[in-house]
Design a binder for these strands. Structure first.
Length: 495
RNA sequence: GGGCCGUUAGCUCAACUAGGCAGAGCACCUGACUCUUAAUCAGUAGGUUGAAGGUUCGAUUCCUUCACGGCCCA
């Protein structure tokens, strides 16, 4: 049905295709040799403006025609390649009658190769004066409208290629995303970290509280799970002697989609032997300011209207003091599970699946404190029962040496000194397994192989995970995770 | 999962309040035009209004259900 609606334009384009074929024109040739990008041409002009003429040097460039202004025997083209946009001027008396007749059959959206010299139009714009024009690839479907572009978010996400063709700000976001990941990689490699890749398919999904995707391996006859985190594998590598490792890769969590969540998302995790969670906080701040400087040129950014300073002091406060000072909960209540639940219900805060004290505390934190942490803030000392992989604090064994980083009201990193005592780890897993058996599909599973690895000895280590998509959102001022993931998950549309 | 909003030409949007021949701009097609850049001028064409049902003489408009999406909440 949709095909019938668009059919009219497509039918006309297909008729053109037939006409061009009858003239022995190859619509999809593969022998055009490109010798310049648009950027190359601009640089050449900048370097030697005075010796450029409309006859030489001759530039050969290729790209998509984004606009054509036709005037009878002459036309202006706007040509786009990956480096930018360039105007070209096509004259019948320069390219010849036959060639111009073919050019008249071409459409906006077609790829062409051009060669010619550069001149200035009377409005002063450097323009390629075309000697030769060749069709390189034919577009059968019309591009969206040139002025308003493509706005419908559903169509932008489903047909991202159109979004990228039409919306330059979208192109910029994904270029920045690449630069951000590059800058992170450089940061760690410069500090003697080893980049590794660990399994995406795991027999026991571990390292986070999340529901996994399940799949099946035919030849082995076993269930496998798409990983929810790489953590337990990276720590096995620390056992193996790789004292500083990092991985940037995809995690998969079987949960809903929203402006903050995509079922697959990119995670940075890193581990450093002989370091503590406090070292990780220092490292994180260094990394964020370096990445921001490389990518945006500044450590002062704006996210959705809020100015954020990545260079200033990053406040550190414990979870409980944050609840007291920012959340407005009396200190005496903080160890009183029932009291906190009463406080919640009398303040209109719904707590489902309340669980133990630590769970209640973190849920209250999510509602009362998290949205208020706009400037970078480390929250430290998380309860043991919500931190099954973290080392217990030496002075207060109900708490762990763990932190989360919040910026712009969102959790963006989670790190801790690692639990390397295998007996303690086994006990923590057993508690989690009990919850799993109670039906909490997000609880951790027993991983005997991991405990065995710890039994061979893991040096004291600290590690951290940072959600790359959220970091990219922050540095590109994007309100939705779908703006920073090229192909976000969408329900298939029935047509 | 809940609430609100949206889905009309290839694209961006009108028409819906109060039911009465579904429109515009750009794109497309035809013609004119050798410095335009949202080119201009003249003309043509383009629609099962997201899907199914209901009310009605008559539904893009009102009602029900469904699909997909957006925002907010959980």
């Amino acid at each position: 049905m949709v095909i019938e609606q668009i059919g009219n334009i497509i039918e006309k384009r297909k008729q053109k295709v037939e006409d061009l074929k009858n003239l022995n024109i190859n619509l999809f040739p593969n022998d055009f040799i490109v010798s310049h990008t648009v950027q190359d041409i601009r640089s050449a002009i900048k370097d030697s403006e005075d010796i450029i003429t409309e006859n030489e040097p001759v530039f050969v460039v290729a790209g998509r025609m984004m606009a054509i202004n036709r005037f009878g025997k002459t036309s202006f083209i706007r040509l786009r390649d990956r480096t930018g946009q360039l105007q070209a001027y096509v004259r019948k008396d320069r390219i010849g009658d036959e060639s111009y007749d073919i050019f008249k059959q071409l459409d906006i959206g077609d790829f062409v190769g051009l060669s010619g010299g550069m001149f200035k139009t009377k409005t002063g714009e450097w323009t390629l004066l075309v000697n030769k024009i060749k069709l390189i690839s034919k577009a059968i479907r019309p591009l969206p409208e040139k002025f308003h572009g493509l706005k419908d978010p559903e169509k932008r996400y489903r047909k991202r290629y159109l979004d990228l063709i039409m919306n330059s700000d979208v192109r910029e976001i994904f270029i920045k995303r690449s630069q951000i990941i590059h800058a992170i990689r450089t940061f760690f490699l410069d500090r003697d970290f080893l980049e590794v890749e660990t399994p995406m398919m795991q027999p026991i999904p571990g390292g986070a509280e999340a529901a996994p995707f399940k799949t099946y391996h035919n030849a082995l006859g076993i269930d496998l799970f798409l990983r929810i985190a790489p953590e337990l594998y990276l720590k096995r590598l620390v056992v193996g002697g790789f004292e500083k490792v990092f991985e940037i890769n995809r995690n998969f969590r079987n949960e809903g989609v929203s402006t903050q969540h995509n079922p697959e998302f990119t995670m940075l995790e890193f581990y450093q032997a002989y370091a503590t969670y406090e070292d990780m906080m220092d490292l994180t701040k260094d990394m964020f300011s370096q990445v921001a400087r490389v990518v945006t040129g500044s450590t002062s950014i704006t996210y959705q209207g809020s100015p954020i300073d990545l260079e200033g002091e990053w406040k550190r406060m414990t979870l409980k003091s944050a609840l007291e000072e920012i959340g407005g909960i009396e200190q005496s209540l903080l160890n009183d599970r029932e009291g906190l639940l009463n406080f919640a219900s009398s303040n209109g805060i719904k707590i489902t699946k309340a669980g133990r004290l630590g769970k209640v505390i973190t849920k209250l934190f999510d509602v009362l404190v998290e949205p208020k942490l706009i400037q970078p803030t480390f929250i430290t000392r998380y309860p043991v029962e919500v931190s099954p992989l973290s080392r217990k604090n030496e002075k207060d064994p109900t708490m762990t040496d763990r932190f989360e980083l919040f910026i712009a009201g969102r959790e963006i990193a989670n790190g801790f000194s690692e639990l390397n005592d295998p007996a303690d780890q086994r006990e923590r897993f057993l508690e989690q397994v009990a919850r799993l058996e109670e039906g909490d599909e997000e609880a951790h599973r027993m991983d005997d192989d991991y405990i065995e690895a710890l039994e061979y000895g893991m040096p004291p280590t600290a590690g951290e995970g940072i959600g790359i998509d959220r970091l990219v959102m922050l540095l590109t001022d994007s309100p939705s995770i779908r703006e920073v993931i090229l192909f976000p998950h969408m329900k298939p549309k029935v047509e």
